[in-house]
Design a protein around this nucleic acid. Structure first.
Lengths: 132, 132
DNA sequence: TCATAATGTATAGTGTCTATGTACAATAGA
DNA sequence: TCTATTGTACATAGACACTATACATTATGA
């Protein structure tokens, strides 16, 4: 009955689909190395309760991550984190990232964040990515 | 009959809604100061043809930008860029940006972009935002 | 072993969103 | 005024997001 700290939080009021927020949040944790290979993610029903959504919504998210190679899913056993082979970036992926990044920053500035503040966050993340 | 360079390009194959890509792309241009107050955006039908979508789809995008204060819309006259009062960033906006940024970077890395490359792009954008 | 709980999966239903087709209304320009 | 230009309104089709419910598989422990 481990009901420790929820792995994740989402914004139900957001116009962004819940399953997408879940995928994005978990992927970020996975990329950050927060889970070791063999670790088990919470059961869909448990995470669903924590987040306030239906368990099928969590299941859908898990399936996306399985598709991406992050998870092994099976009934009865759960969602197990997998060692995932590095993949080679497509040129499209790089361009997509570039575009989305620009749009995201523009949105933040449009929302009133000072450019300096946005730049600061960008540099901070860049630093976190290159350290070690 | 000015049919100069298209203002914008979108990816019709993307799972991202076309109108959202249009909004995001135009907003980025607006934030970058590519349009002066009083400039006219292309008529919905013209841009629709350039992008390969229905004119109502472009119209929906224009309406979003009008809602955000970027445009003045009216029949017969077109979509005119407006001077837009700066707004004060809500705490939620800052947190939202932070979260989205992390997820975006994680997605890029998951797609195979080297962390160094992602960091590079982040720093490059930060530089562009702070110059001048 | 066997019953039961735990866990992911399948399917159907409902409401919303996205994009389009078509017709309409307001403005500009000759 | 007449016509072209431009944004708008509304209906429709299809896809999508989320939920309810039942099912299949695996683990657990008596």
């Amino acid at each position: 009955m481990t009901h420790g700290v929820p792995v994740l939080r989402i914004d139900l009021g957001s116009d962004r689909p819940a399953y997408e927020q879940i995928v994005g949040g978990l992927r970020a944790l996975l990329v950050a190395g927060e889970f070791a290979s063999g670790d088990r993610l919470p059961p869909v029903r448990q995470l669903a309760i924590d987040l306030g959504v239906h368990h099928n919504t969590v299941a859908e998210s898990y399936r996306v991550l399985e598709q991406e190679g992050w998870l092994d899913l099976s009934r009865g056993r759960g969602a197990i984190v997998r060692r995932r082979p590095e993949r080679k970036a497509s040129p499209a992926a790089k361009q997509e990232f570039s575009r989305r990044l620009e749009e995201l920053a523009a949105k933040a500035i449009a929302d009133g964040l000072p450019r300096a503040s946005v730049a600061e966050q960008l540099k901070a993340l860049a630093g976190r990515l290159t350290e070690t």
